[in-house]
Design a protein around this nucleic acid. Sequence first.
DNA 1: TCACATTTAATTGTTCGCAATTGAATGTGC
DNA 2: GCACATTCAATTGCGAACAATTAAATGTGA
Lengths: 153, 153
Amino acid sequence: MARKPSAADAPLRLDNQICFAVYSAAHAFNRVYKPLLDRLGLTYPQYLVMLVLWERDDVPVKDIGEKLFLDSGTLTPLLKRLEAAHLVKRSRSREDERQVLIALTPQGYALKEKARAVPQSILAASDCSVSELVAMKDEIVALRDRLNAVIGE
Amino acid sequence: MARKPSAADAPLRLDNQICFAVYSAAHAFNRVYKPLLDRLGLTYPQYLVMLVLWERDDVPVKDIGEKLFLDSGTLTPLLKRLEAAHLVKRSRSREDERQVLIALTPQGYALKEKARAVPQSILAASDCSVSELVAMKDEIVALRDRLNAVIGE
DNA sequence: TCACATTTAATTGTTCGCAATTGAATGTGC
DNA sequence: GCACATTCAATTGCGAACAATTAAATGTGA
């Protein structure tokens, strides 16, 4: 019974899953980033947080979470590690004591200059034109946003 | 100094990172899958392992790892949980005692039928035509493979 | 003002994901 | 046949990721 490939099984074949394509691509990116980020002393999620803060710091944890789609259960310990590495400072907001504001330290600011080498290495590893990458990125973001829209029912 | 958006900062802007698009899309998929897989009693990585085994079981851990790009540090505990859930059986190969072969139990086989509902739910959540999804999947897989090619130098 | 709901981080517990190491089995070169 | 390298899974330790809960601060309605 059902020994040879059946057409009815196609939807369950690993190679037909776009989710697995995305999942495995994310891990592949992680592995390419690893040696680059090791030099900065950052993990990949920490790098994402730093990207947010390099655009604008002195922001509450919640804002970082909304930009990265992460919650406090992930961010609180991560930010404590960044603080232990002297890259950020955490402090309660005076206007609203519930909020913890995340600010860059001078070392945190300075790391941005070292980080400028990262995107070009990634581009090289992608072995692909910038315009192709931008087009793919836009498609993937659109898919992500449609998926996220479904989650809130 | 550098208060307003600078063109030099574009490569470091979060919204310009294809890696973040992929990373956040993977998490979005995870969140859409969660309620569907809860009904099967599986996590998303466990579901991927089951997809592999539904295509062919009685395979060594290494084969599963190569298909999913995961190593024994991830798979060993995951497979033990699947065994505890009576979905797979782990046994040492007689021909090569180093290998652990993973076989489906009757319950593991049976779960495939319940799983058939999953892909169509995902398709609906993607809100996108099959042909578009296939095209995206192929592009992402190609990017993933180029990235993986760089890792082995 | 006071009861009540909401917001925000932090905490706890479970599951991934991976680097590094270990130990047993197998393969090899001499 | 025997020393040596290689392969394979398991283990350990650390850092995410998230659900669920907690606690404190703030907002709201009567």
